[in-house]
Design a protein around this nucleic acid. Structure first.
Lengths: 221, 221, 221, 221
DNA sequence: AATGAATGAGCGTTCATTCAT
DNA sequence: TATGAATGAACGCTCATTCAT
């Protein structure tokens, strides 16, 4: 497993121990504030205060807010990627169970307070900032890569395109539930039901889908 | 059907014609700015300037930014609700076709620039503001009500709960595609494929799902 | 004579009486601070405080510091231009006396605290900002225009180019004395001597200079 | 003749070779930045970065910005003084030619980018800081000393005061041209004309001026 | 002799809001 | 209804400076 470091926009070198601690404190507090109050209220001053430092010192580590935000998102996204890799490593032998494990994990995660609050913010930012869109896509791509593999195990007759499309469709569908059954969302009570419904159903779909150019009625309309 | 104007937080009485026109102009320009640059850059000054008025006069119509935002979201959401109702009214007799029409419309809509930009912003706001969450849920509830009806036509053996769960799952799944195949999003080229895949597949699911407490392997895990 | 107004970069409309007063107070206090402490210490906050207003209100009148500075320089320069025009209007009939009056006025003015402090700041700004350089040149051009006229009266045999060159040389020479005999400068005690020396001498030069392409030994070396 | 280095405010002892090199690098980079962007943008951080060092280390050499500025101006001024002395040493035997050489050199120099940008900054600083005013005066005094000598050679009948006044007047006049015919200034195309006009004319003045208390019409007015 | 780390004040500017006109 | 005029807090950021390492 990789080391923790994700910071690349930081100019404060953090070579001393105190510096490293400060750098970490910045990311942690920024992360907390981001989750808590969203991007709009994530100001340099608030981060500095939360991390117990002066604004001047914060901008020694991050000269601009954009730099800090970039590192912060990288940091959080890296956390998710690491979880995904762990997930894969721990996968059982049975393909169906792998499928259930991966989607189940994501579904459960989406209901946590952190994820429910974080991802919509990320989606908004990605809509306005190309670099953020890229990082986000990189993360989702890693996630889908796992899905593509598992789908291939379940139904080896599917070609690459079909596997990709299925993975994309499945992951997009699950992500969509964040807004409805996520933490504090109105239908969170149905989360368990929907999770099983969705997973079993997509599992069946993967199995049932014919090979390349299958007769599933797909034609662009 | 509702009237065109939805303003309820506005304190300016807008009893004169010019006042009504101004009120409308505010909402239209605010809407445009919201779509264009997002909630974070939607400031009273910018709205006032866009609507060709002074900030002072804007705050005659909307004493606080929150009031304006509330009316604005109501206004935009009402627009979507109206579209949904039109959709229902124009539905064909064939249940399958109704299903395809409703979901097809939503899927196509999600790829428009406006919707791709607007909904994630709405989701973020709903995460932080209960009133907004309520209005959003009201809108989605109307949308799902249509779905529940159509699902009932397709498969009358399903009980209320099952219909609701299916409608929720289907709508959530489709919404999730906004982030991946929406306007400017990295996989927009697959939108057509995914739309058909998703719709046909959900249609089959609705048909195949057993009656109440069906043996679909669903148990909370 | 023109009205007092020079402001063109101001966005505060100053239509009310209080607004006009405020606009005037800003320019006056800014002018005072500029003379007193120089461009480097002329900050929006200091101006606002000196004019007894909030920074927010100052930026209602001048959205940016550059706008304020532009108006300020225009305002001060206009003051000098007005003085120059008065000077011309009051000129006596005798050409020699006109010459002495104009140069004597400038020389005396350069020794005032205001002018000694203001002009070097202006020269520095003109070195870095084209717009300021333009405004400055416009002012000096008006000044030289007067000189050119008087020189023509004194020695009608001179062609345009020669008159212009003489005016330029004379005015530049006098300006240079600001740094040496201006207010608080080390040789201010010699100001009187030098003024007479310089003026009489330039007067003789104007008289002695031959017509166009005179045999004054001028060849580019 | 002075040594090359003039640093007197510096507290870093610079006893090691590397220290001396660093001290030199600071002055050179500071000089470059001062010429390039002016006093207002000459910050400790920018100098440190340009000299490839940390702000902390810079303040080991110069504890305050004022100290650095003092040394810097001394350094630059010393450069000019050295040029002036070279000038004198290379002077021809003919007095008239010496006069032309000295003034010609200064006039040409004033049109260089460096000098056009540097001197007005110096004048401004001298207006606000006595120590700087002193150093500047010291430099100009040396320059005028040369002029006084040459003037004495040309016209030995002049007494000290008259020679001094003439030197002051001549040097001030030439300095004034910086703003009008210097580098990038609007009348730089006339520089050659004006130089000859001015020099020949002042040469004649020196020759023509009567002895002490001459009847040149000079009376304080 | 040098860097890393930190402070605290100040910068220009934007903002929601208020209120007299 | 509408604008003009004003506030005061907050924003991101830069600065000279200090001090431990």
């Amino acid at each position: 497993m990789q080391t923790q470091r994700a910071s690349m926009r930081r100019t404060g070198t953090a070579t001393y121990v105190t510096g490293q601690e400060t750098a970490q404190r910045i990311l942690d507090e920024a992360r907390r504030l981001f989750m808590e109050d969203g991007h709009g209220k994530l100001t340099m001053r608030r981060i500095a205060k939360a991390a117990g430092m002066s604004p001047g010192n914060l901008s020694y580590y991050y000269p601009t807010r954009a730099d800090l935000l970039a590192d912060l998102l990288q940091y959080v996204i890296d956390g998710y990627i690491r979880q995904l890799q762990t997930l894969r490593d721990e996968a059982s032998d049975d393909a169906d169970e792998q499928f259930r494990a991966v989607l189940g994990f994501v579904f459960n995660d989406l209901a946590t307070r952190e994820t429910t609050l974080f991802f919509p913010e990320l989606w908004v930012l990605a809509n306005r900032d190309d670099w953020i869109a890229q990082q986000m896509e990189k993360m989702y791509a890693q996630y889908r890569a796992i899905l593509v593999d598992v789908i291939g195990l379940i139904n080896p007759t599917l070609d690459e395109t079909r596997r990709s499309d299925l993975a994309l469709m499945i992951s997009a569908s699950i992500e969509g539930h964040t807004v409805f059954v996520g933490h504090g969302r109105p239908h969170r009570a149905r989360a368990g039901q929907l999770r099983n419904l969705l997973i079993e159903h997509f599992l069946r779909l993967v199995k049932d889908t014919g090979g390349p150019r299958s007769a599933d009625g797909t034609k662009d309309r």
